[in-house]
């Protein structure tokens, strides 16, 4: 984890940080909705949509870096995490639409708590060489 490696990582910039913060905000909002017995509201769905746009942006940046010849430390795991990551908000969206009760909000909360973990794992699989 040298500073040079960190600077060269395409998934370790403003976009990744923004995704993590946004995901945690949506999770917090969804948790409040769950505790107040509220179904997923417009704010949660808008939050999921914006989060998905940010994650797709992150994926594009990563793909551009890969196209430019850069390679992650663990290519297979990196690809797996990247694909999983962009699928998470749609998964939450679909399940929350199917469940218009407080439990729909709980699903949004759970998925939005997992998303930052996957972003961090994505960053680790880029940086860790031979780990």
């Amino acid at each position: 984890m040298t500073s040079a490696a960190a600077a060269g990582s395409p998934v370790d910039g403003l976009l990744a940080t923004a995704s993590i913060v946004l995901s945690l905000l949506v999770a917090a909002w969804a948790l409040v909705a769950t505790l107040r017995h509220r179904a997923p509201d417009r704010a949660q769905f808008v939050g999921l949509a914006v989060l998905e746009v940010a994650l797709l942006g992150l994926a594009v940046v990563a793909l551009v870096a890969l196209g430019g010849g850069e390679r992650p430390g663990e290519p297979g795991a990196f690809a797996g995490y990247l694909v999983t990551l962009v699928c998470l908000p749609p998964l939450a969206w679909v399940l929350a639409r199917m469940e218009p009760t407080r439990w729909g909000s709980a699903i949004v909360c759970a998925v939005c708590l997992v998303t930052p973990v996957v972003v961090v794992r994505l960053q680790q699989t880029w940086e860790v060489l031979g780990g």
């Binding site: 469940e99 439990w103 759970a110 998925v111 997992v114």
Partner: peptide, 12 residues
């Protein structure tokens, strides 16, 4: 209900 949340976590 809660079952759907459980299914979501199982899916993850």
């Amino acid at each position: 209900g809660p079952g759907r949340l459980l299914i979501a976590v199982y899916l993850l």
